[in-house]
């Protein structure tokens, strides 16, 4: 295993841990900071893979602007740590079996499958098309040198389908957030 590969697995693990921290920690500021840490790990992974431009953009846009905005909002609202999440027994399994939830689960699973198949499919054909040896870990996605042009060509050529799948995921997340954050006013039947 090369040094780059070892670093990649370390960073990947750290990213997952930080991402879990975003969901599991109950102090909003800690959530934001672990998300920030996850972004940094991701940016380093991009760097390892040779996408300098992408790494810089990741930090500039996400860590530098969006997360600051998050922090800003949290501080303005002065959020206290949230209540404990209800345990599965309290909610009951039927929540997942209700009709509306069922539709959601099906759509989410379909999106996940679509994204996964897009990534997996593209990768195998891509590697075969390049006529390269099967590569492991970070080496598998290392692009040809020439960072910015190479990035554009890869993103809007070979990886177009995964790219669009990810944007679908973002869209779905945005819709979900709107639904979750929507207040139920009296007389409002939709929910």
């Amino acid at each position: 295993m090369s040094v780059a590969n070892a670093l990649f697995y370390l960073l990947a693990a750290l990213t997952v841990v930080a991402a879990a921290g975003v969901v599991l920690l109950r102090n909003p500021i800690a959530n934001v900071l672990s998300l920030l840490f996850a972004f940094f790990c991701l940016a380093t992974i991009y760097l390892l893979a040779g996408f300098q431009f992408l790494a810089a953009t990741q930090i500039l846009v996400y860590a530098g602007a969006i997360m600051v905005l998050f922090l800003f909002v949290i501080m303005l609202l002065n959020l206290a740590p949230g209540p404990k999440a209800p345990k599965l027994e309290e909610v009951g399994l039927p929540m997942f079996l209700r009709r509306k939830s069922g539709v959601t689960v099906v759509i989410a699973a379909a999106l996940l499958l679509l994204g996964a198949s897009a990534i997996l499919g593209t990768q195998s054909t891509g590697v075969e098309a390049a006529g390269a040896m099967p590569r492991e870990g970070i080496d598998a996605i290392r692009p040809t040198p020439g960072t910015n042009d190479g990035l554009a060509a890869e993103m809007f050529g070979r990886y177009l389908l995964p790219f669009e799948a990810v944007s679908m995921l973002l869209l779905a997340t945005a819709v979900a957030v709107v639904v979750l954050a929507k207040r139920n006013r009296p007389g409002d039947r939709s929910a």
């Binding site: 500021i29 920030l36 300098q52 431009f53 810089a56 953009t57 930090i59 500039l60 860590a63 530098g64 602007a65 600051v68 922090l71 800003f72 501080m75 960072t147 910015n148």
Partner: peptide, 20 residues
């Protein structure tokens, strides 16, 4: 190669020190 971008990206981090 991405000198300016790197500079701006890391430079934008300094706001965290202030806000935290």
């Amino acid at each position: 190669d991405i000198g300016i971008l790197y500079l701006l990206a890391i430079g934008s981090m300094s706001v965290y020190g202030v806000i935290l």
